[in-house]
Design a protein around this nucleic acid. Sequence first.
DNA 1: TGTACATCAGTGAACGCGCGTTCACTGATGTAC
DNA 2: TGTACATCAGTGAACGCGCGTTCACTGATGTAC
Lengths: 199, 199
Amino acid sequence: MSPKQQRGEATVELLLDAALRLYGQEGEQGLTVSAVTKASGVSLGSLYHHFGSIDGLVDALLMRWLERLLGEMVTALERSRTARTGVRALVRTYLSFVREHPAAGRLLHSSHADRLGMAQAKQLRDTQEARLTPLAGWLQRHVDKGEIAPLAPPLLESLVLGPVIGVSRRWLAVGDVDLDEAARVLPERIWRSVSTDGA
Amino acid sequence: MSPKQQRGEATVELLLDAALRLYGQEGEQGLTVSAVTKASGVSLGSLYHHFGSIDGLVDALLMRWLERLLGEMVTALERSRTARTGVRALVRTYLSFVREHPAAGRLLHSSHADRLGMAQAKQLRDTQEARLTPLAGWLQRHVDKGEIAPLAPPLLESLVLGPVIGVSRRWLAVGDVDLDEAARVLPERIWRSVSTDGA
DNA sequence: TGTACATCAGTGAACGCGCGTTCACTGATGTAC
DNA sequence: TGTACATCAGTGAACGCGCGTTCACTGATGTAC
């Protein structure tokens, strides 16, 4: 799957970069074989040599950016000692990632991502295990400590990431939301929704 | 746009129903002209007579179901007196809508919906004005009363609907979440995140 | 009530276009001896 | 260090398929007089 010669890696890089650029400009319908080859300057045959199909290329692109996002989130968590600072850091990390990589953000919210999550849930979890294990572990520790409410993990995930994704999608699609304000306000309110304390 | 003879309405109904059914079974790529005509039994020419294009049909389908969802949410709100019961009712209404109409839920979360929201934000707001005005009014009233935190409306919307959409998407795509548990747990936790009270 | 006529609704063959993919081939790279 | 060779990487013409759309036409409906 991965190139065994140096020039191969450069080609793969050119293709993935061009694909993301196109996705940012044109959306899903911009990701055609001819558009990607033209934008990257790489030949049609090379694309097929490295990715096998256009879906293979898109899957690889998704994986690459999912790994980067998860990597940043794990890093943010590892710097946090309490559950509260951790949750707040997650929220801020996600928002700044999307601000910095809007096209990647769009991609990760797209139906391609859903399709990948559906078709290859197991494979995805294997591939991203290095990222997901620390996340799950951190969560479990703070649930055990009684700081985070003992809900099913998907519910906790939705409570934390749901509003962040909502704001991100809106910022990307409509633009009528202030990311700075969101980064100021959301972390504490989201923390409230998953903490054990309170009302 | 809308049919001027009775039999026209029936045809439109057949087409929209078939399209939703296909979308539920096959996803976006199932929504082709030939698939819709075959599944509906309606001729190709009739489809173009009523909708002008396949995108026109999909847009109409989206509008129809968006209106139904918003309608149910407005109804739920009108039955609620306090901000807390209102927010909780919104959450539960959304979840039961998705449970009852999974294909429509998928459609409303799709990139088609984003595209519509982006391209026609203004037109959408005009078309759905009858639904959106009561929602915005309800929100403003309870912000004024000091029950709901005075945040920008898109942020409030994300805090309330974000987790619900997150859970719905996950239920639709992966299925590893219990909607009953979500309906039990989420309303109160979401309420916490938007209420003025507390920590 | 009857008739003429404009409009609406429905039909399906035909078209062209752009898509993803294949394939036979050339050239570059790295390795074994 | 030199050479032979297997493998990897890159190339682009060609293909076929399914897509959305057009269009000339027939039939049904409703309305005016």
